[in-house]
Amino acid sequence: MSETKTVDPDRSGHPAPEHAAFATAAGGYFTQVAVAFTAVLLISNVCVTKGVQFFSGHHLSWGPLQLLPLNTDGAFFLFPLAYVIGDILSEVYGFRATRRIVYYGFGALLLMIACFWLVIKLPTGDLQEDAGAFQSVLGNTPQLAFAGIAGYFVGQFLNSITLVLIKERTKEKHLWARLLGSTVAGEFGDTFVFCSIAATAIGIHTWPDYINYTIVGFIWKTLVEMMVLPISYRCIAFLKKREPSYAPRSRAAIFE
């Protein structure tokens, strides 16, 4: 193994490099990871149109804070994976490459919204008696789409840049701190922005419901990151080992 690829002073005995290591976003597994990220993003932004409430028959409050029922949306089980994959992208390929995927995801979301709008406007004639069902499911897309795009931009940039900045200081050590720290920053920004804009579109109209919706979303997404941490470790180790271009890079090369 060449010295440029030896980045763990604790295991190899070699001194830590001057800069954090990243792989180039060409060939390798970059495309597969990017496609998985975009797919999760698009599917989540369709599932989010359904409001979900757990323990709806129970009402429990602690002062002004509503504890039960728990308010969330239909993307609660899938969307956190976008941040898990975003962490993998940022850790292995760096901020510059992840920023490209954020832009691609933004374009894909805009295309999806435009297609939904166009299909809703198209006439059905006598072909379908329940044509309104399509609009009832996806008719809220302008508000939800704006919420998704705004939250996505804020959250993913916070997530990626936080992870890369921590990695600049820690190099290859303390991966858990980078993954959790970036998730807390990214999920907080995403959840606050998204919930603030999207709440009324899924039936949330009171402050207790809104606060519950925001807190539940943030805590749940952070817990998902913690639960899948062992999988994230394995995926990152797999990619670092098999990406031939993974090597230390200067700060300018990472952020330009």
Results as ranks from 00 to 15, higher is better:
38 T>F: 02
214 T>M: 13
124 T>V: 12
236 I>V: 13
211 I>T: 13
16 A>Q: 07
70 L>A: 11
18 E>T: 12
22 F>R: 04
216 V>F: 13
45 N>E: 09
133 A>V: 10
193 V>D: 03
60 L>D: 00
241 K>Y: 05
175 L>D: 03
48 V>W: 00
70 L>W: 08
54 F>D: 04
114 A>I: 08
150 A>R: 04
251 R>M: 11
254 I>R: 08
193 V>R: 01
120 I>G: 06
225 E>C: 13
183 T>S: 15
173 K>L: 13
62 W>V: 08
151 G>I: 00
45 N>R: 03
140 N>D: 12
213 Y>N: 00
115 C>S: 15
121 K>T: 14
174 H>F: 14
52 V>Q: 01
168 E>R: 14
13 G>N: 04
91 E>C: 02
216 V>K: 04
32 Q>R: 13
253 A>R: 08
150 A>T: 10
131 A>G: 10
131 A>W: 11
141 T>P: 10
73 D>N: 12
73 D>G: 06
144 L>T: 06
196 S>Y: 05
253 A>F: 09
248 P>H: 01
50 K>A: 12
196 S>C: 05
74 G>D: 00
203 G>I: 06
231 I>M: 10
233 Y>R: 12
25 A>H: 04
179 L>I: 10
188 F>M: 11
186 G>R: 05
105 G>N: 04
53 Q>E: 15
30 F>H: 03
204 I>Y: 00
128 Q>M: 15
47 C>T: 10
156 Q>H: 14
106 F>R: 07
8 D>H: 14
117 W>P: 02
235 C>F: 15
235 C>S: 14
132 G>C: 07
99 R>L: 06
60 L>M: 10
128 Q>H: 15
66 Q>L: 14
230 P>K: 00
180 L>P: 02
86 G>R: 03
230 P>T: 00
58 H>R: 11
150 A>C: 09
175 L>P: 01
208 P>H: 00
36 A>I: 11
107 G>D: 03
191 T>C: 08
74 G>A: 00
72 T>H: 01
224 V>L: 08
49 T>L: 15
228 V>W: 09
237 A>G: 09
90 S>K: 01
24 T>Q: 13
67 L>V: 14
243 E>V: 09
38 T>N: 09
222 T>E: 12
131 A>S: 15
145 A>C: 10
91 E>D: 11
201 A>D: 02
196 S>L: 05
250 S>T: 15
9 P>K: 02
217 G>R: 02
193 V>I: 11
44 S>N: 04
99 R>F: 06
94 G>H: 01
46 V>H: 00
248 P>E: 00
114 A>G: 07
83 Y>G: 10
132 G>Q: 07
186 G>H: 03
163 L>P: 02
229 L>I: 06
142 P>E: 01
115 C>G: 14
41 L>Y: 02
173 K>D: 07
112 M>S: 11
241 K>E: 11
123 P>Q: 09
234 R>L: 05
184 V>N: 02
82 A>S: 14
15 P>W: 09
214 T>Y: 07
185 A>Q: 02
62 W>E: 06
206 T>I: 10
130 D>E: 13
162 T>R: 05
170 T>I: 06
222 T>V: 14
55 F>Y: 08
167 K>H: 02
231 I>L: 13
158 L>W: 10
98 T>Q: 06
230 P>N: 01
199 A>I: 09
65 L>I: 15
241 K>P: 03
41 L>T: 07
